[in-house]
């Protein structure tokens, strides 16, 4: 598989502030890459360097095998970009704006027309003929996706596409991106982990200017996982006694008494869970609920970024 996007040992500082220190990763064709990090971790900076809007202090970026040059990047013809807050010419209608985009990229008129129609109906703006100046945030975001996909880019880069939107707007954007993944490779940044879980194949977690975690979403959830078992007793008075017993077990990493029961962190819930169960039976402790909690990306994220 070919890498559509490749970053090699990227570095960038603003004055004394080192935002990106030695960042490397690659994104393969026809995948969805979730670029995760806290606010201010350097996600937007990285994206602007990919587009040639900012100059890296060191390192190289390749799009579709071609090196990105700062200032006048030819490689942008492979890219569709959705800025975090896309801005348009307010005096144009969506159709007129897409026509301008088509002319700039050199698409034939008929192609622009056909694709505009298709894309506008995909993002739900096909019947919106008024000028962009009155558009809501969500509408601008949707038009932003349409303009980014107009030239059928090999790579669609979205900077925090959902973070400024209300829950309905977020769902709409995620649905549209799920359709778009059929046609192109998507890189999107976010700090909302449930969005990543919904549509990403691979993730990269950036922290402190470096990629601290990278790989397929499923593997990461499993690999780093600390399982959690939740036990709720019918007799709350026995909580403390059970706690001390559990903490004596060698495979238990941490046992804690929380308001929703006893939470036990351990490395492998399926294997060692039996021992916990036999302990409960042996001691004749009545159990209301016994549950192995699903590992979530959020736990993993908090663990590596922490």
């Amino acid at each position: 598989m070919m890498a559509v996007l490749e970053l090699k040992n990227l570095e960038k500082s603003f004055g004394k502030l080192e935002v990106i220190k030695d960042l490397s990763f690659a994104v393969e064709e026809h995948s969805v890459f979730g670029f995760i990090g806290k606010n201010g971790a350097g996600k937007t900076t990285t994206m602007k360097m990919i587009l040639g809007f900012l100059q890296p202090d060191a390192g190289e970026i390749y799009v579709n095998g071609e090196r990105v040059a700062y200032g006048n990047s030819k490689t942008n013809r492979y890219i569709g970009y959705l800025p975090d807050v896309p801005e348009f010419y307010g005096y144009m209608s969506p159709k007129e704006y897409l026509r301008l985009c088509g002319e700039i990229t050199g698409l034939p008129k008929e192609v622009t027309q056909a694709r505009s129609k298709e894309l506008l109906s995909m993002v739900g703006l096909e019947n919106t003929n008024r000028r962009i100046r009155g558009f809501s945030r969500g509408m601008k975001q949707r038009l932003g996706i349409a303009q980014a996909l107009l030239n059928e880019p090999r790579l669609l880069i979205c900077d925090e596409p959902t973070s400024a939107l209300d829950p309905i707007g977020r769902k709409e954007i995620l649905d549209i991106l799920s359709i778009a993944r059929e046609r192109t490779t998507i890189v999107f940044s976010t700090h909302i982990l449930s969005d990543v879980e919904r549509i990403a194949d691979n993730i990269g977690v950036i922290n402190d200017g470096k990629l601290v975690l990278e790989g397929p979403v499923q593997n990461i959830k499993n690999m780093k996982r600390k399982d959690t078992i939740q036990i709720v007793l019918s007799n709350q008075e026995m909580n403390t006694e059970l706690m001390s017993r559990i903490n004596e077990l060698p495979f238990v990493l941490e046992g804690a008494l929380e308001k929703d029961g006893i939470l036990i962190k351990l490395t492998n819930a399926e294997k060692f869970g039996k021992e916990i169960m036999s302990l409960l039976v042996r001691e004749d402790i009545p159990v209301l609920r016994y549950e192995i909690l699903e590992p979530s990306l959020e736990n993993v994220f908090l663990e590596v970024v922490g």
């Binding site: 970009y81 807050v85 896309p86 348009f88």
Partner: peptide
């Protein structure tokens, strides 16, 4: 305003 970003990102 940032209106040039989309346009320049188109190459």
């Amino acid at each position: 305003k940032g209106t040039l970003i989309n346009i320049l990102a188109k190459g």
